[in-house]
Design a protein around this nucleic acid. Structure first.
Length: 260
DNA sequence: ATGTCACCTGGTAGGTGA
């Protein structure tokens, strides 16, 4: 089974690119589950029919203007949950469902804006709530995948200029400590299970020709539970969609689970 | 480098968030 995550920065704008990307991955390369973030559309305007017509099932949870998440799947999605149970949140950030016996959590972590901002305080509270809920969820589902736009770099390898960006948003010790707390629940960063090219990133600013100059961050991640670790056959970042006309600023990350 | 993009309100631009 192949799972992927992609922050599309408006599904209204990017739907053709999403469908093209899924189409381009056929046969052995087929994507079984794609988690989307920043769909930026209310549920009544979600392009369900177009996605279903392409042969996929879909679960979605959105809002006006900001945020919004979805799971697109070639297989049935069951036991869908919106956001973090027990954590009151105005923002549509998490969608969870079970596909082929794997609990799939697709998440759009708060950006945080700046370490001294109210939005950073919210980010820390959200991360604490996610941790508490996932701890419970892992007792119910030993096969679990947490993927999405984490808005956190794991370490300096994920940062194009770790000196200049030290302590700035996405790169603070507080955010990285929260990331490690998720790992300590019994999850592993699938990308780092393999040798990877240096300067591998998943996001590049639209400004300053950042993509062309590879001035990026790796902030989109796929974490798998320890039970699934031995099944991880590959984890890659697909830079191709970032080269599209009118691209998202993020590009997809893919994990291949063998025998699943 | 106030550098881009998406979407909103409310208007023939400006604000917000990323």
């Amino acid at each position: 089974m192949k799972l992927a995550t992609w922050n599309v920065n408006s599904l209204t704008v990017r739907l053709p690119q999403v469908l093209d990307w899924l189409n381009a991955h056929s046969g052995d390369e087929a994507i079984d589950v794609l988690a989307l973030q920043e769909t930026k559309t209310t549920d009544d305007k979600f392009p369900r029919a177009e996605i279903e017509a392409a042969g996929y099932q879909v679960a979605f949870f959105g809002q006006k203007t900001y945020n919004g998440v979805a799971l697109i799947s070639r297989h049935p999605i069951t036991d869908v949950v919106h956001n973090i149970p027990g954590f009151a949140d105005d923002m549509a950030r998490v969608i969870t469902g079970t596909v082929n016996g794997v609990r799939v959590v697709g998440a759009y972590f708060p950006n945080g804006q700046a370490p001294d901002s109210d939005k950073f305080v919210y980010k820390m509270a959200w991360l604490t709530a996610l941790h508490g809920w996932l701890k419970d969820e892992l007792t119910r589902h030993d096969k679990l995948v947490l993927m999405g736009d984490f808005n956190i770099t794991v370490d300096d390898r994920d940062v194009w200029d770790p000196v200049a960006l030290a302590g700035t948003i996405h790169c603070t010790n507080e955010e990285r400590t929260h990331f490690q707390a998720l790992i300590e629940l019994g999850l592993v960063d699938a990308f780092r299970l393999f040798d990877q090219l240096e300067k591998s990133y998943s996001w590049w600013d639209y400004r300053e020709f950042a993509f062309r100059r590879n001035r990026g961050l790796r902030i989109d991640h796929i974490l798998v539970s320890n039970v699934l670790k031995s099944q991880v056959a590959a984890c890659t970042i697909d830079k191709a969609p970032r080269k599209n006309e009118r691209p998202s600023d993020h590009t997809p990350v893919i994990v291949h689970l063998a025998n699943s």
